[in-house]
C-alpha cells in the first residue's frame, strides 16, 4: 500500500434516501467489497440482505447467560437450603426444583439479559472512545437524517480513484469524501 493511503481510513459516500443507499449497498456487495459498512439513523428493513450481512450471533450469548442463570439459581438454593444448612419448612423436602424454580427463572432472565447486552457490545466492538468517521463533520447527520456508505482503505479491492468513481457513477452517491485515519 502506498504512503498516501496509509493516512486514509477510506471513502465516505453520502446518499439522500433509504432507497438510494439500499441500491448502493447491493452494488457494493456484488462488487465484492468486504471491509465496508452502511451508516443510517435507524435500521433500514432489508439492509442486512442488501449488504450480505450474516444473521446476528447475539442469541448464543443469551443462551449461555440464561443457562448459567438457571443453573446458578438451582445450585445456590440446593446448597443454601439443603446441603449447607438444611431448613425444614412445613415438612416439605429439603430440596425440590419446584420451590427453587421461581428464583432460578428470574436468574435465567437476569443473566440472559446481561449476556445479551455484553454480547451485543462484544460483537459490535463497543464501547469505543473514538472512530475516524466521528471526526467527519458531515457524518454527524448519520444519527439525524443522513445515509452513508463507507468503504475502508483496508479492503483488498480498495483503490482510491477507482473506488471513488465506482461510488459516484455506479452507486450514484451525492458526495464522496476521503476520511482521514
Amino acid at each position: 500500500m502506498s504512503a498516501s493511503t496509509n493516512t486514509s481510513y477510506g471513502l465516505l459516500a453520502s446518499f439522500e434516501t433509504p432507497a438510494d443507499i439500499m441500491d448502493a449497498a447491493i452494488k457494493c456487495r456484488d462488487a465484492g467489497f468486504t471491509k465496508w459498512d452502511v451508516f443510517t439513523p435507524f435500521p433500514i428493513h432489508g439492509m442486512d440482505a442488501a449488504m450480505g450481512v450474516k444473521k446476528s450471533q447475539v442469541g448464543w450469548f443469551t443462551f449461555a447467560g440464561g443457562f448459567t442463570g438457571f443453573f446458578t439459581g438451582m445450585t445456590m438454593i440446593w446448597f443454601m437450603n439443603s446441603h449447607d444448612y438444611g431448613l425444614v419448612v412445613g415438612g416439605k423436602p429439603l430440596f425440590t426444583p419446584l420451590y427453587a424454580f421461581p428464583v432460578s427463572y428470574e436468574l435465567t432472565i437476569l443473566f440472559g439479559s446481561f449476556a445479551t447486552l455484553f454480547g451485543l457490545l462484544f460483537l459490535n466492538r463497543l464501547p469505543r472512545l473514538h472512530h475516524p468517521l466521528l471526526a467527519v463533520k458531515n457524518f454527524k447527520k448519520a444519527t439525524d437524517d443522513g445515509y452513508f456508505l463507507c468503504i475502508e482503505a483496508g479492503d483488498p479491492k480498495y483503490a482510491p480513484e477507482v473506488t471513488r468513481t465506482f461510488l459516484v457513477e455506479q452507486c450514484h452517491a451525492r458526495l464522496v469524501e476521503t476520511v482521514e485515519d
Partner: peptide, 12 residues
Amino acid sequence: LGWTGSNRHWSN
C-alpha cells in the same frame, strides 16, 4: 458508547 449507526451494529 461510540455508536455510529453502522448497519453491522444495527443488525446485532
